[in-house]
Design a protein around this nucleic acid. Structure first.
Lengths: 336, 336
DNA sequence: TTGTATGCGTTATCAT
DNA sequence: ATGATAACGCATACAA
């Protein structure tokens, strides 16, 4: 691997001073370098294959700012709009944005953060903070401010931005009630994620608030299959058979709607005429299922901007592990 | 914004030489610095909030290598596995990987590349190279090697890695034929992308090779709706009504299968019993539709690794604008 | 118009 | 065990 070509090399080859070369090659050429020498220097630089050292430039000029976004292996598509809005917010503040997929890297999220030691960056935005305290430790070791976007954890060890899941669930059920639905089922996951219990709680609150009976029998928990071949949820299959009277379903998140819809279809039930269906998240899957899914949308744009603002403004502060809640909106499509 | 704390600051505050501080704070502390002074220096550094300058470190030590991956606004999920494999391939060679979403940045892809002038990077991997010659110009201006992953363009101005679309389409049709299907329709897009004509060509070749009549009437081109509310393709609705006799469909890409399946369902046709359906790409959508889609999978892992290899090995070569074809595989699910 | 010298923050070499 | 100093590659203030 040949040594890199520097200004000194070009200057020597062109028989001029280093400073002249620097001036001639600047992005907007210095006005007081003669056109003749500039052309000559340029061609020499070309010949030698000169490439300026971004690193040296940064060291000399200062002012390089970057934020690192750490994204999980799955959920791609979920966080796309968040990253985009984070980009814009960072841009406005003169920050670059680096995206680092965890993607099976050594040590998971904490490992990725540790690797940031060798990358110029000034802050970390991480999706789905795990319970792993190593994440916080790794960030602390680098003295980098960190904020998470996550609603899966009950106890945050990081400053965290989350959607208000209870409120979103209430909005979903209220929409169903407004459509005249009276027997509303809840289809949730079996896990113990915070968003899971929050959404179920919101469902219960809204059902009660509508003056409808809160019936535990109308709450189904489905187990997520490990492999992709999951076509329907056995739990929901059984539930629907036992409760043909329901006229609406609130799915804990959009992805669950795909298997649920398959079951409904096989049972000859129509959506939304027979049974209305509403999801949560408004991710890609919502547009792919049939019919397109009415859902509760997380305010992704706001979340990204908020994360960057928190990160930058907090750069010199100690970041308390508080949770910032943002408000979801109803996205109406055709399933309810 | 306070000036950054440097080694000199710590050294002054601790009353020791700069070198000692450097040694004490090194990742694996130098053995010949006394434990006492090390502890003292550490606590002083802590107090002052010292953060090493990655930039200065790089300048001094050299050896920093990075590759930039430029990803399009849509298609997230499509390129995820490619990026992941690129990560591993880059890692093996000691390269970092930076991901840059285009995400409405000034000047599109070319603008993103131009902005790389201020980011330490040694090569560019771009998804879906556009016809924009500005992309190549921008990369050339930075003297950065660039390779594209794309199968939409006929004439490549960049070294490009593509899946063999003709072969993939043939594989799809052959699979259908092997299932005993005899009246196979082609549902494609109306655009003039290279993959579009290639896949249609592969379809025609395979139909002919199977001794089946190649009937233009069995080829439908559907117009992509701009807004997301596209539920079915009017062109396909009409086609199905006119050709109830078909027993199989090859969709140009997975995403088209969602609207097609809706039409089929409304017409009371069952998949795969009545009509078999096969897609192309094996992206997320394939697993969400009902039934899960049998499809032709692009070898994403291979593509990412190949791109990195090309980039790194080509670093000092002139990159000819050749096209490297990779072979797809059949991914069997339930629609055919 | 062009050249010389300095400093950006590190680490490594050489002294001490 | 620790300190002074050179060098990484660049851009600029200052001289010429």
């Amino acid at each position: 691997m040949a040594r890199r070509v520097t200004l000194a090399d070009v200057s020597k080859a062109a028989g001029v001073g280093i400073a002249t070369v620097s001036r001639a090659l600047a992005a907007e050429p210095h006005p007081d370098v003669s056109a003749a020498t500039r052309e000559r220097i340029r061609s020499v630089a070309d010949e030698l294959g000169y490439r300026p050292s971004v690193t040296a430039r940064i060291l000399r000029n200062g002012g390089y700012r970057a934020l690192s976004v750490i994204v999980p292996d799955d959920l791609w598509g979920w966080w796309e709009p968040v990253v985009v809005s984070a980009f814009h917010a960072a841009d406005e503040r003169g920050y670059h944005v680096l995206v680092h997929p965890i993607a099976g890297q050594q040590g998971g999220a904490a490992g990725v953060i540790a690797a940031l030691a060798n990358i110029p960056t000034d802050g970390i935005l991480i999706f789905g903070s795990t319970t792993d305290p190593g994440v916080k430790d790794a960030a602390d070791a680098l003295r980098l401010p960190i904020v998470a976007i996550d609603d899966a954890l009950k106890d945050t060890i990081l400053p965290t931005i989350s959607v208000d899941n209870v409120q979103g669930a209430r909005m979903a059920v209220e929409h169903l009630v407004n459509q005249g639905r009276r027997s509303i089922a809840y289809v949730g996951s079996a896990g113990d994620a915070a968003f899971s219990s929050d959404r179920e709680q919101g469902y219960r609150e809204a059902v009660a608030a509508a003056g409808l009976p809160v019936d535990d029998a109308l709450v189904v928990h489905c187990t997520d299959s490990e492999n992709e071949s999951l076509v329907t949820f056995p739990e929901f299959d059984a539930f629907l058979a036992a409760h043909p009277e329901i006229d609406a379903i609130f799915c804990e998140f959009d992805l669950m709607a795909a298997p649920v819809l398959r079951t409904l279809r096989r049972a000859g039930r129509t959506v939304p005429d027979d049974i209305a269906l509403i999801g949560f998240d408004d991710e890609r899957a919502a547009q792919l299922v049939d019919p397109p899914l009415t859902t509760i949308r997380q305010p992704y744009e706001e979340m990204g901007a908020l994360a960057v603002a928190t990160l930058v403004d907090r750069a010199n502060t100690t970041g308390a592990a508080e949770r910032i809640l943002v408000t979801p909106t109803l996205k109406r499509r055709q399933s309810a």
